[in-house]
Design a protein around this nucleic acid. Structure first.
Lengths: 137, 137
DNA sequence: CGGCATACTCTCTTTTGGGTAAGTATAAAT
DNA sequence: ATTTATACTTACCCAAAAGAGAGTATGCCG
């Protein structure tokens, strides 16, 4: 994709009526958060997961945030939640088509992050160096 | 892209060593926030913007958040900041290559959001209906 | 009888995000 | 002399987000 194609696509996107625009922005705000993105990634890799499995795969997420994020995703139609009436309880989560679509869309961002994290670390240290140099005298 | 290709790509991504994995996750957390994404989008469309222009284009962002987000983006090497020594002050922001890369990567998510926001609204109302039905008796 | 496992839920506290409003510098315009 | 424009910075404050930790239900296993 050329820069101009990109520019054009984004312009087209903003040229729709402002109500849609706000909806889309709100949706991005909702969906583009750390835990949602992580869960989408994990659920893409392993198709079907139990609650505890997701928790372990996320590393460091609290139970509260996990339930909360999963509920929001369920509400938005990104995952399905299947409860088995057994004891101890068993609940399985899997992506819907909609969720898989988001995964595809977001895949580019993961790839970008993996390709560029070194450059960003470099930019960060350069920046603090520059700031330190400035305040030196 | 097939579902399996996607799965494989994401698996490859997680198979790198866990240190890189955490870095990438941290980067996603940093960059995947509402204001950053909006600013990236605006700066892609109009190439070069002054502070005030960005503020107006964002609609409803406070000066504080605007400076704060722009500073973080500068630190990460996503934008350049050019100060002109004039009065009243004039400062121009534009995306770096890195920033433009992020824009490209994230473009897919905007498109997805635009294509699917109706489905999500529908899923939401279905969900609340289901919940209401449940709690009815 | 006493754990253990699982998927929560609830409460309490801390942290963060983000808004508001005021202050700063300075040249040009009125 | 006062206002205007611009891009901030700083201080203060509130509400929302998130973490920590305990509690719950229940059948199975020893």
């Amino acid at each position: 994709m050329t820069d101009d194609t990109l520019r054009q696509e984004l312009r087209d996107l903003s040229d729709t009526d402002p109500k849609v625009d706000r909806l889309v922005e709100e949706l991005i705000g909702r969906v583009a958060d750390k835990w949602t993105m992580l869960l989408v990634e994990i659920l893409t890799e392993r198709e079907c997961c139990r609650f505890g499995e997701l928790g372990r795969a996320c590393g460091g997420i609290s139970q509260k945030m996990l339930t909360q994020t999963l509920r929001a995703m369920e509400r938005d139609g990104l995952v399905t939640r299947t409860v088995y009436a057994v004891v101890p309880p068993k609940v399985e989560y899997r992506l819907t088509d909609l969720g898989l679509g988001l995964s595809k869309a977001f895949c580019g961002v993961w790839l970008w992050a993996e390709e560029n994290y070194e450059r960003i670390e470099l930019a960060r240290s350069d920046y603090t160096e520059r700031r330190e140099a400035k305040t030196k005298y």
